[in-house]
């Protein structure tokens, strides 16, 4: 192997090592448990990096929380109980899907409301244009560009 190739190979190994670091060697009993763990970890936010889930993050805190998650699953807690455990300590912010309540309804329905408002605007404009096309325009056409 030539020297540059050896450097490349070493780099590739180092990068592979980094990618593997985010996966803890947790002693899962079976594939079902592993799948449950992964599903939960993907839905919980890493508090340090904030835009990564517990499953993605290699932050030390995320690793601690994955350990806690694993222990809670081992304890036989349900998904709801696990999430409750974490929200009691870290707040709703740990959940990637925030609960539907008074503070969050606009996060859930805001986008739909905006789309509806946009649709309503389009409908009103189109109707006006149609009505205006038959009759003589009341205003100069350039006003309608808005």
């Amino acid at each position: 192997m030539s020297a540059p190739r050896r450097v490349l190979a070493a780099l590739a190994l180092a990068i592979a090592g980094l990618a593997a670091a985010a996966v803890d060697p947790l002693p899962f009993a079976d594939e079902t448990e592993r799948a449950r763990f992964n599903a939960l970890a993907a839905e919980l936010r890493c508090m340090v990096c904030q835009n990564q889930s517990l499953a993605d993050s290699d932050a030390p805190l995320a690793r601690d929380l994955r350990r806690e998650l694993f222990e809670l699953i081992r304890d036989g807690r349900s998904d709801t109980e696990v999430k409750a455990f974490l929200t009691e300590r870290y707040g709703d912010f740990v959940l990637y899907r925030p609960p539907l309540d008074r503070r969050t309804w606009w996060i859930w329905f805001g986008p739909a409301l905006l789309v509806l408002a946009g649709l309503a605007t389009v409908v009103v404009i189109v109707r006006r244009r149609r009505a205006g096309a038959g009759a003589a325009p009341l205003e100069p056409a350039k006003d309608e560009e808005w």
Binding site: L61, D64, L65, E68, R89, Y90
Partner: peptide, 13 residues
């Protein structure tokens, strides 16, 4: 050292 107690306090930094 292992974040056993701080976790219950919701410490994230």
């Amino acid at each position: 050292p292992d974040n056993r107690v701080a976790l219950h306090y919701g410490v994230y930094g």
